[in-house]
Design a protein around this nucleic acid. Sequence first.
DNA 1: TCACGGGGGTTATACGTAACACTTCTGGAG
DNA 2: CTCCAGAAGTGTTACGTATAACCCCCGTGA
Lengths: 345, 345
Amino acid sequence: MRGALPPRPTSRDVAERAGVSQATVSLVLRDRWHGRVSPARAEAVRAAARELGYRPNVAARTLRLGRSRTALVVVPALTNEFFARVHAGAVRVAAGDDVGVVLYTSPLETGPARDPFASAGATLDGVLASSMAAEALAVLSGEGLPLVMLDSEPGTGAAATVNPDIAAGMRLVARHLLSLGHRRFAHVAADVDSWTFRERARVLAAELAAVRGARLVGTRRAPIGVPDGVLAAERALTAAERPTALVCDDDMLAVGACKAARRLGLRVPDDVSVTGFDDLTVATAVEPELTTVRLPGEELGAAGMRALLAALRGESPGATVLPVELVRRGSTAVPQEPAAPGAPE
Amino acid sequence: MRGALPPRPTSRDVAERAGVSQATVSLVLRDRWHGRVSPARAEAVRAAARELGYRPNVAARTLRLGRSRTALVVVPALTNEFFARVHAGAVRVAAGDDVGVVLYTSPLETGPARDPFASAGATLDGVLASSMAAEALAVLSGEGLPLVMLDSEPGTGAAATVNPDIAAGMRLVARHLLSLGHRRFAHVAADVDSWTFRERARVLAAELAAVRGARLVGTRRAPIGVPDGVLAAERALTAAERPTALVCDDDMLAVGACKAARRLGLRVPDDVSVTGFDDLTVATAVEPELTTVRLPGEELGAAGMRALLAALRGESPGATVLPVELVRRGSTAVPQEPAAPGAPE
DNA sequence: TCACGGGGGTTATACGTAACACTTCTGGAG
DNA sequence: CTCCAGAAGTGTTACGTATAACCCCCGTGA
């Protein structure tokens, strides 16, 4: 594949130029030379390497050492800003420890289509996987590499788990809306079968069940994205019993919900309150700005990579839960309608 | 780094189990066995490999072959949706040709901080780089690998260039606004020194210069992002001469511009028209939806990877220009104000 | 009968690096 | 003067794979 390129210099070329053996070159450049090579020769080796533009062959080094200081990061899709943040956090921490990151994007639902390990193009030391379905997890853990899961069911055979406190997030949303006086809710749910979304549904139902008169009048599933959010919210808002609050699993769905409300002539937040999840950039781009749960995506990726690096050192990081935060903005308010059913219109 | 993991089986293990030599295993699994190994033995080898869960060692293969079927993709930041799309397109095409992709994210302005080749964790066959500054390009081309540049100055020593038709895009924007009757423009420019943004500024200026009475009343630079877009647009809209149209280098900046207008009590598009660039998801999330130039990000990545694969096969793909499209939406309209200076208020 | 060709394998080697085990030399203690 | 310790290097090997080069045996045509 490399055409008629000038061949890359090897450590042997460096050795020849510096007038030493290849072993000495390796010692010097790996910084293992103290007390074994005289400072003058060490400097000569470094100079020769510099002059030739020498760069160690990664494949040879990996083969020799049996490890690569490279981790695989698996996320569903980078076009989802949340996962781009996770990736950025993971890369930041890995870089600080001089560990490389190879990325694999895998559809949320189906799991890896191609073999993530074969297509990685690198020998891998560990895996950091985010928001995967259980079957996908099985594929990943099958390799026997240290595995850290993000935003996934705890205690599923991974070396460690790092999760944002999803339950707390949904609890904050529910209590915020309840305290504003909302009683009829609809859940605009992400049409994805993974722990994080099951958890949201579970907690929402539990919180509403705990308050007299509060009810979930409907759940609409939609693939994450604005257009599908519009459709799902339209159906929720035109159902027999109209909810006063739309709880959305994701900011994109929430944006769709706001658009749907507007199309139906409903004002947000006066006629219907809308909440999101994630606190993406879009949450403050729209008008009104979204009330949402801030999930620390960058920190999630960073903490996950820290856990993976610890696992690679032989430690057992266990499970970590990251705090989340409710960001109150303009898309939620006291419902402007008869509060008690049966009251005159 | 790999703790007490069970050692991975090698081709020699497979050979032993199948009762053949290691060479035969390699021949069979590389599909080079026709006429050299009997079908029965070939099947036995494949069975043994399956039973052991054998997976060829990537490092050893790369070392032996001197190439890795792996390409480096360099983008400024994945949290920018446009580059996430570019990446997705590149990965899609590469996967179709059984080529892996390693990602490197590099700050737009400064170029690679860490060594992209050292941190790749893989031997690389080629490089696909997007929207890089000239100095960054120099670092990348220094390695002597086949290099394809995206959205960058044509003819800068790369094997090939693939660009969206930036000039046409800005021309469409300018003519659209001019035909609506706008004459006083401000440019909300991305504060990034790269070809693509210089090109936008150049074409905008040229188009306005070609129409009597049309003028650029100001240029405000801002880092790409909503908050900075707000600031820049606020300054543009409160300047002595208020523009009727804000031409933004990016949808994020345009969203910020819309927010700024609203804060100043100006209506979009009645009091001020706003245009974006890229057609990101956010463009249809906001109200009014953005008039913008759709840059085919996914296709850009795909075409770039196709060019790189061609270069790796020894062909010379040359320069490609991808068509762009003006998407007229709600953020532009005929200016609602005295068209001619000097007319009564 | 023998040379020969080809099917069906095997042996051996190289890729570039890291590091263990050795060698050589020098200076100082005994 | 001998012996030894340590400094300063070098020779050699192994990592796992792909493939060139070789080998053996059987059938066939001369």
